[in-house]
């Protein structure tokens, strides 16, 4: 769309202002408010998850008692649920492509699939949490427990919110309240969903795959 040619943030020239050309009066940046807001929110979320992941990373191998990641993680299991979440990104983007084509049946299909995959992931996480707790790892147990549960829990809450949004979209679409003109709603929620997915990509690597340094006892405690 020619009308959305983006003026540079800092070096736009007045002549480029669409309104003066009698062109579509888009926003100054050419991006809608909602999308810009979502992206700035995602930028903010980078710092949020960055802090959580960093906390986990910092405390790797510093727990003074077990269990440790090594003897509790079930990598094949987590790999599958990671894969499920990764594929939900695909279904999400297919949903967006569908509404962009005006294919509302496929939109609902893919949105439902995305929500379903997300639910499978959350179900997997619930199962994982329960089994960890059975194996004696809670938030209170050690640093590993604290940082693991808080990090993955935060992510899980984000996924859950995403599922709620997706289901709302399905419902709206089914009631005919999601016309093609509102394609952007799908896009914005898609952005959120993909973000949650990329965060998990990082978590999967940093938390699950990269092993903790050995030894949770190298650090003598001088507390008397």
């Amino acid at each position: 769309m020619a009308t959305t040619t983006t003026p540079e943030v800092l070096d736009e020239s007045p002549g480029e202002n669409p309104a003066e050309h009698g062109m579509s009066p888009v926003t100054n940046t050419g991006v809608s408010n909602e999308k810009l807001a979502m992206w700035s929110f995602l930028g903010s979320e980078c710092l949020l998850f960055g802090a959580l992941i960093s906390t986990y990373f910092l405390y790797r191998g510093r727990s003074l008692t077990g269990p440790t990641p090594k003897n509790i993680y079930d990598i094949p299991y987590t790999s599958i649920s990671s894969f499920v979440l990764l594929m939900s990104s695909l279904t999400m983007v297919l949903a967006l492509a569908a509404i962009q084509r005006g294919d509302h049946r496929r939109l609902r299909l893919w949105l439902t699939a995305t929500a379903l995959l997300g639910t499978v992931f959350i179900g997997g996480q619930v199962y994982e949490f329960t089994s960890f707790i059975h194996e004696g790892l809670t938030m209170r147990t050690n640093l590993f427990g604290s940082s693991f549960f808080v990090l993955t829990g935060f992510h899980g809450v984000h996924v859950t919110l995403g599922i709620m949004m997706l289901l709302s979209l399905v419902l709206m679409s089914a009631r005919g309240r999601l016309p093609q003109s509102k394609v952007q709603v799908v896009e914005i929620i898609g952005l959120y969903w993909h973000f949650v997915d990329v965060v998990w990509i990082v978590i999967f690597t940093v938390v699950y795959l990269i092993p903790s340094p050995v030894a949770h006892s190298t650090r003598p405690l001088q507390i008397r």
Binding site: S44, E45, L47, L48, A51, L52, T55, Y59, R62, S63, L64, T65, M139, R140, N142, L143, G145, S146, S147, F149, V150, F154, H216, R219, L221, I223
Partner: peptide, 27 residues
């Protein structure tokens, strides 16, 4: 978001017995 995380960590320490800043657990 940075202080939000920090506050959450303290909240989990206080309310749910997490160990983020507990030196006795290595925090």
């Amino acid at each position: 978001p940075v202080i939000t995380v920090a506050l959450f960590l303290v909240m989990f320490d206080r309310n749910f017995g997490a160990n983020f800043f507990n030196p006795a657990a290595g925090g």
